[in-house]
Design a protein around this nucleic acid. Structure first.
Lengths: 161, 161
DNA sequence: TATTGTTATACTCTATAACTATA
DNA sequence: TATAGTTATAGAGTATAACAATA
């Protein structure tokens, strides 16, 4: 394994990030590594769109599930509520979401995507998709569709076809 | 999206962790989320084997690629060298790896897996595999093999069949 | 002069625990 | 009494920059 970085033609690189061969056949390691590589790359590139990965996630959730409370967002993202507060603050300042009080339960904030937020989401989707195409560059379009399907089914987002 | 956590039968949960529906059709978000869920779960469960996820990665790399320098490990894991030093310290204390000076270049440490390390890796592999089966519970064995193949090919670990 | 390993420091992110307001 | 949002604080993890040994 010596001089792996410089000399070894065996080194597996995606967009400048190494994928250890030891991860082959170890799905957990492989998916964890791909996840962090994707997160790092997307964070770099989304900066051009004025977003980070977490903000992108929030916009995507609001666009798909409709307006929701910050507690909901915290659960869906697996983070503490305080983390969401700060992110929604930033998004609201930039006009990408708005907070309104839930009339039925005035403790709750309803976070809603604005037209500007939807536009930012579209731009971020393009950046993210391009990044995935780079990281999974070995797949053609059909294989890529197959992969998306398998993941969605595997995780229970979509019922088995 | 209100009351998503308690009431909504639409909530997608894997092993207690939510997967946002907004991630469907957004491969980057989906893979990033699965990666962190997998990392969190594996870290919890590997504790029984006396390891954490990072240590598991190091053992897997050494087992597959053979002994290597700490710089190599840093590159393959995408972390700063200092992070690796601390981890190898811990692994060496527990007898799972040994450090020897590279005779050809005495600056280098050769980190080598011990038999005890190989045994710990086997145990960790079982924990990790079980965790993946849980997170990707919607897949049968054939679909799971297909997914592994697509990821390995996509990322360039394996040439397209 | 450059590189490996190592250590110390500063920074970022996060959970946790208060607190306010609503219920 | 319990919950949503908010804030402040402390802890973990990290990169960065320095240093010693070797090249």
């Amino acid at each position: 394994m010596s001089d792996l970085v410089d000399d070894d033609p065996d080194l597996c690189l995606v967009a400048g990030h190494a994928i250890p061969r030891g991860a082959e056949g170890r799905t957990a390691l492989l998916l964890a590594r791909i996840g962090t590589v994707l997160t790092d790359l997307a964070d770099e590139r989304l900066a051009a769109a004025g977003l980070d990965g977490r903000e992108y996630s929030i916009l995507a959730i609001l666009a798909t599930d409709g307006p929701g409370s910050q507690q909901d967002l915290a659960t869906l993202l697996g983070r503490a509520p305080g983390v969401i507060v700060a992110k929604v603050d930033g998004l609201e300042e930039r006009g990408l979401v708005v907070r309104t009080r839930d009339p039925g339960d005035r403790r709750r904030s309803r976070v809603t995507l604005t037209p500007a937020g939807a536009k930012a989401l579209t731009a971020a989707d393009e950046v993210a998709e391009q990044t995935v195409r780079e990281v999974l560059g070995g797949l053609d379009a059909a294989q890529r569709r197959q992969l998306d399907e398998l993941i969605a089914v595997g995780v229970g987002l979509r019922p088995a076809a």
